[in-house]
Computed example of a mutant assay.
Amino acid sequence: MKSIIFDKIGTPTDTLKLTDVPTPQPGPDEVLIKVIASPVNPSDIKFVENLYGIRPHLPSGAGFEGVGIVEAVGESVHLRAGMRVSFTSIGTWSEYAIAPQRSLIPVPDAIPDDVAAQLFVNPFSAYAMVQEAKVPENGWLMLTAAGSAFGKLVIQLCTMRGIKTIGTVRRDDLNDELRALGLTEVVNTETESVSARVKQITGGEGVTCVLDAVGGHTASEALKCLGKGGTMLVYGVLSGQEPAFNIGLMIFRELTVRGFWLSDWMRRVDSQTRQDVAQNVIQLLASGKIQLPVEASYTLDQIAEAVEHAERPGRWGKILVKP
């Protein structure tokens, strides 16, 4: 089978190679999946660069999630061949992938392949983080990198819950689309003072929670936007730069800054919470109440173009790899 493999750490466009490897066989509690489609997420790229919470064991496959058809099952697996499933694993940019049974989510017919390929990482993270933010109805939630696929999901979820949102952008070309999804206010970090604008928007009260994916100066400014007792949930560092936080501000406003990693959150919460999130996400996607647009699809031999496109600024949808 053909699979994307990397045998050294570095820039994905330089290190990822299309390779012929033996088709693996599932062991106990494992499933062999014929891959239909897999997205290119920031976490996939950070993994190849060895900047993610999971370290690669070289040589390694790449890609963390996808949709496919169950081809074969190992011992103790209670699924049948031929089922369409969303799954997580290491090495989903491949014709076939091995996934643990516990990672599989049967996909309803109402969810198309392009949406099912993205079912886990962004939707589950967005749903879980909006829950963790604990913003009341009619309260304010702020998110950096609002134009990202994750940001668009958060906007849609908050709109359904009656939560007002402020999103930061670096360019104004997606502003109309973001407002159409329900974003209440847009702040351009290149042309406006973020903290001054948020203070104006919220009548000086600040926001209850910030979801930050950027780090650096943007995160430092976003902290100033929190109201008394507010929380910043950090889930990425797209800028590659560490933020500088005002300690006095944290003390006297009683602010909390903590990280969020979906893998740890899924391990930490009870099974009922995980099931509730899965059921709610699937229902929202199946009903079309939240959208997961796709901008372009690439084959395995176009992996360099796929990764380059995924990192291109101003994208309006996800990039998929389709074997």
Rank of each mutant, 00 (worst) to 15 (best):
K2C: 00
I5D: 06
T13R: 00
D20Y: 02
P22S: 07
D29H: 15
L32S: 09
I33Q: 05
V35C: 08
I36L: 14
A37S: 11
S43P: 06
I45C: 09
K46R: 05
F47Q: 10
Y52E: 14
L58F: 05
G63A: 01
E71Q: 03
A72P: 07
V77E: 01
H78C: 06
G82Q: 10
G82M: 02
G82D: 03
S86E: 02
T88W: 07
I90F: 14
E95A: 00
Y96W: 15
S103E: 04
S103A: 13
V115C: 03
A116G: 13
A117Y: 08
A117W: 09
A126R: 01
Q131G: 05
P136R: 13
P136W: 03
M142R: 01
A149N: 06
Q156L: 12
Q156P: 08
M160Q: 12
G162T: 04
I163P: 01
N175A: 08
D176V: 13
N188R: 11
N188Y: 08
N188E: 14
T191R: 14
S193R: 05
V194K: 02
T202Y: 02
V210K: 09
E221T: 04
K224P: 05
K228W: 14
L238R: 03
P243H: 12
E254I: 05
R258A: 13
F260A: 07
W261G: 07
S263K: 08
W265D: 07
R267K: 15
L285M: 14
G288Q: 05
E308Y: 02
E308I: 04
K318M: 08
